[in-house]
C-alpha cells in the first residue's frame, strides 16, 4: 500500500494529531507523545495500531501527539489520517 505524508487532528485539549509518513523500515512504528502517557500510553498505541492494521496498513511511520483524546477520537483521527495518506476512501461504501 503506497503511503504519502498526511495528518489528521489538532493539538487542542481532548484531541490527538496523527501524522503518517512512508515507513523507513518495514512495519508500523508509532512515536507517541501524550499528556497522559503514564497511564494510557500503551492503550493509545494499541488503539492506533488496531485501527491502522484493521484498514490494511502494515508499513508506516506514525507520529502521534496526544492531548488526552478518548479512544473514539483516536480511532477517528487515525482513520482520517489513513485516508489522506493512502487516498483510499474507507467511508465510500
Amino acid at each position: 500500500m503506497e503511503v504519502k505524508n498526511a495528518a489528521a487532528g489538532t493539538l487542542e485539549s481532548g484531541d490527538i494529531l496523527i501524522q503518517i509518513a512512508p515507513a523507513q523500515q518495514a512495519g508500523l512504528h508509532i512515536d507517541l507523545d501524550s499528556t497522559v502517557a503514564y497511564q494510557f500510553g500503551a492503550q493509545i498505541k494499541k488503539v492506533i495500531t488496531e485501527t491502522l492494521t484493521g484498514l490494511g496498513l502494515e508499513n508506516a511511520d506514525v507520529k502521534a501527539t496526544d492531548k488526552g483524546a478518548l479512544d473514539c477520537t483516536i480511532r477517528a483521527r487515525a482513520t482520517a489520517a489513513f485516508v489522506r495518506a493512502t487516498g483510499k476512501d474507507v467511508w465510500a461504501d
Binding site: Y38, Q39, F40, G41, A42, Q43, L70, D71
Partner: peptide, 10 residues
C-alpha cells in the same frame, strides 16, 4: 467505561 482502566502511576 469511557476512558479505560489507567496503568498505575510510577
Amino acid at each position: 467505561k469511557i476512558i479505560g482502566t489507567p496503568d498505575p502511576l510510577p
